[in-house]
Amino acid sequence: MQPLIQLDRVGMRYGAGPEVLSDLTVSIPAGSFHFVKGPSGAGKSSLLRLLHLAYRPARGSLTLFGRDVSALGRRALPPLRRRIGMVFQDFRLIGHLSALDNVTLPLRLAGFRDDQYRGHVVELLRWVGLGDRIGARPAELSGGEQQRLAIARAVVTKPDLLMADEPTGNVDDQAGARLIRLFEELNRHGTTVIVATHSGALVERFDHPVLELLDGRLVGAPVPAAPAAPDADSGAGAAA
């Protein structure tokens, strides 16, 4: 089975700066759930930016959805990005848009008309507990509500790949665990999930393979096998 993500000796740098990621070689199968763990500055966010196609590898090759994206032109990137849902660490909600408009934005960008998605979006907002805050702007929402709104926006297009950057950073342990279970529910429906966190305690509470980063390099023993997904081979796992 072809992996959803394949990195082969990938290096990444910002502009002409030093490499922030070096020699990453890893394969992530479709339908898996992975944690990316490491201390601050280890390169977790950079890895997610790389996988989210905000940046391209400085060297090595990155294969996503079966396509080598290392040298793809700008025009080829938007359709690939639409297959990825991203929950940013700072949520990156658009302040002048309502909760509803923030969530519908990816659908509008994908070319859907409002009558095609309205019911779906309202249902999704109810699912994340924001059914009564549809018209609220982000500034009117609590931190937890903003986070759930960001998650709703990330999953509204039913992406093949969902990534979250420190999603539990601003919530207590219980809320963090609930959030991971929410991601697990999405994962059970076939979405490949990658969650970056610096919290070892959180990682230990769940039985998912871990990619550990330190100073921009993957370290440690091969991660445990990923749980079987509906369309993934049984026992498929990531290999660092």
């Binding site: 989210h52 905000a54 700008r74 025009r75 938007p78 359709p79 990005r81 639409r82 991203m86 990156r92 658009i94 934005l105 990816p106 960008l109 994908a110 926006r153």
Partner: peptide, 16 residues
């Protein structure tokens, strides 16, 4: 720039 980068991240084309 922040919003435009977000739009790109969500799949917007340069033309959009």
């Amino acid at each position: 720039r922040g919003v435009v980068e977000l739009l790109h991240a969500l799949g917007a084309t340069d033309g959009y």
